[in-house]
């Protein structure tokens, strides 16, 4: 399985020279199985960059097929949806798979994102390709093409995020972003279970330790929470993810150096760029 980070930034798409190396686009991750089948996680602004690549191939001809896992509906995870050009080509088969936000339906939430006040698209029904929205119950396990997906609900400030364990080609990627545990060093059992022996763990590491003291309760983790999960779940590699919009490339470098000094787990900071072999 290959993986490409199209967006690694948290909360807010950040532009400028200070963030060029890690990248400023918000969450979007592409997984590609050995056979070439794809799976996308989240529709942040990074998805608009992937869209350009997809449109050069079968999606430009209306023959593309793509399942998209949605961790939750905070804006930085869906803001690329109205600009994901494969939606505009009839024939493409695109499924959005995610949980209902608390007290709401996923369908209604995405419909509201495209409400006429907010978007000239004026509703999901005007996406030429159409979109099927499949609501899942977190905790369930299902298959999307060649990808086996195990899910769990994890706390994210005043709402919840769905975390994913994706298996393909005998390799495992676990996505645990937009999560804050009651104590950073005491990750919840469901998170550890999802990350068990993963080949790659992608974990929320939005805050530096100092910053975290000011941001407790906002739903994000410091790097030490990511390390704690990685160690306890004995993962092979850890990608620090969902970088703060205020974190420059130099600051992220420093976070990585500090984190490496704290653990024996192989780790790096997720960066927009080329395909990685899992």
């Amino acid at each position: 399985m290959k993986l490409r980070f199209w967006g690694v930034r948290g909360s807010f798409a950040m532009c400028g020279r200070e963030v060029l190396r890690y990248g400023g686009n918000t969450t979007s991750i592409e997984l590609v199985a050995a056979s070439g089948t794809r799976l996308l996680i989240d529709l942040g602004t990074g998805a608009t960059e992937l869209a350009k690549l997809l449109m050069q191939g079968e999606f430009g001809r209306g023959q593309g097929e793509l399942p998209i896992l949605l961790s939750h509906t905070h804006l930085d995870h869906i803001q690329g949806l109205p600009f994901f050009t494969p939606f505009f080509v009839k024939g493409n088969r695109i499924r959005i798979v995610g949980a209902d936000p608390p007290g709401l339906s996923l369908q209604a939430t995405l419909q509201n994102q495209l409400a006429p006040h907010y978007s000239p698209l004026n509703g999901l029904e005007n996406l030429a390709a159409g979109v099927s929205i499949d609501t899942i119950v977190p905790g369930s396990t299902f298959t999307l093409g060649e990808f086996e997906v195990e899910t769990a609900l994890v706390p994210h400030g005043n709402m919840w995020t769905t975390a994913f364990r994706v298996t393909a080609d005998g390799k495992v990627v676990t996505f645990l972003s937009d999560v804050e545990y009651p104590e950073p060093e005491a990750p919840l059992p469901e998170a550890l279970h999802l990350a068990r022996h993963a080949d790659l763990l992608i974990h929320d590491a939005m805050h530096s330790d100092d910053d975290y003291q000011l941001r407790r309760g906002w739903g994000h983790s410091p790097a030490r929470a990511a390390i704690s999960v990685a160690e306890k779940a004995a993962v092979r590699r850890l990608a620090l993810f969902h970088h703060s919009p205020d974190a420059t490339d130099a600051m992220i470098d420093e976070t990585v150096w500090r984190a490496r000094a704290e653990t024996k787990i192989e780790l790096f900071a997720a960066a927009e760029g080329s395909y990685l072999e899992v």
């Binding site: 930034r9 798409a13 950040m14 532009c15 400028g16 020279r17 963030v19 060029l20 990248g23 400023g24 686009n25 602004t45 608009t48 960059e49 803001q79 690329g80 109205p82 600009f83 927009e272």
Partner: peptide, 16 residues
């Protein structure tokens, strides 16, 4: 217009 575009190709005119 439309959506923010980070990256090297827009760093001078700006992406916000």
């Amino acid at each position: 217009g439309s959506y923010p575009v980070p990256g090297a190709a827009t760093v001078r005119y700006g992406g916000q």
